[in-house]
Design a protein around this nucleic acid. Structure first.
Length: 271
DNA sequence: ACCCAGGATGGTG
DNA sequence: CACCATCATGGG
């Protein structure tokens, strides 16, 4: 058991932020989180957290996963005080962080996410894990490409993937047998622009999904995925353009604050 | 019944 | 190049 005091971290907010689709709620302030072959149960009371793991696992796996080496306090302070909208947005989502998730799982998540809603994405990811997951001790880890490569389009449609089923069929087969490791290796040597281009070369992955993969799966903090929510925000609050340069180095995190706020607003959680 | 959802693809002008 | 119909399917 590891106990830590951590600021700028709300499990509740992150779980509802639409960046990860595989957390399981265990209680009011308690979540089960799976990352690769690791699983942890985390509970939160204010800024007090307890993780069901060893110190070593915390340092090596969960500290990076929760992006705890990034100073969100400084980031929050860097927000332009004259920008009342963004100031409110960051204040509202003060517990948001951008997780450092697994590349393959993020790729599948956001491949499925296109023209889809978060509830359905979450359900499809759970079904994929339930049907094709690898047994990993007491829990199921998300399947690797090999675990999905045997499935056909109809198999994925049954899980609610709809027309995206054919994308996943092809992706899983292409990245089986070392293809995934090869792709990850190649992406390491790429700059941001190049990485985005490489990902867009995959069937079913366009610019927006590629940007999500770069941000959430490759941990490249300057990607700023523009989806329907962000488009709406831009037209409503930044008709003259968003001040990207000011937030260079943290554009992805700023994007996540904006997205989260807009997401809650449309569900009526923001007054 | 209608519109929307963390869009991408393939075809057309 | 820029548009645009189409793609499944559940949520609100």
């Amino acid at each position: 058991m590891v106990q830590r005091s951590i600021s700028h971290l709300s499990l509740e907010q992150i779980a509802a932020s639409g960046q990860c689709f595989t957390w399981a709620r265990l209680g009011p302030c308690r979540w089960a989180v799976v990352h690769g072959q690791n699983r942890v149960e985390v509970s939160q009371e204010g800024e007090q957290f307890s993780f069901s793991c060893t110190e070593r696992q915390f340092e090596e796996v969960w500290k990076p996963y929760f992006d705890l080496d990034t100073d969100y306090g400084t980031l929050v302070q860097s927000v332009d005080p004259a920008d009342e909208y963004l100031t409110g947005v960051v204040e509202y989502g003060r517990g948001i962080r951008v997780l450092r998730q697994d590349f393959w799982e993020v790729t599948v998540s956001f491949l499925i996410s296109q023209n889809n809603n978060i509830t359905r994405i979450t359900r499809s990811m759970a079904e994929l894990r339930r049907k094709y997951g690898r047994s990993c001790g007491e829990f199921l880890a998300f399947p690797r490409p090999e675990g999905l490569a045997g499935a056909g389009e109809e198999d994925f449609r049954e899980l609610g993937l709809g027309y995206r089923a054919k994308y996943l069929v092809r992706l899983a087969r292409e990245l089986s047998g070392g293809g995934l490791e090869q792709l990850e290796g190649r992406l390491k040597d790429c700059g941001d622009e190049e990485a985005e281009k490489v990902l867009m070369g995959l069937y079913g992955i366009g610019k927006k999904v590629a940007d999500c993969i770069c941000l959430f799966g490759l941990h490249r903090a300057d990607f700023f995925p523009v989806d329907t929510h962000i488009r709406q925000i831009f037209s409503q609050h930044y008709p003259g353009g968003f001040p990207s340069e000011r937030y260079r180095g943290n554009l992805g995190r700023i994007q996540q604050y904006l997205f989260y706020y807009d997401l809650k607003k449309t569900t009526g959680a923001v007054t």
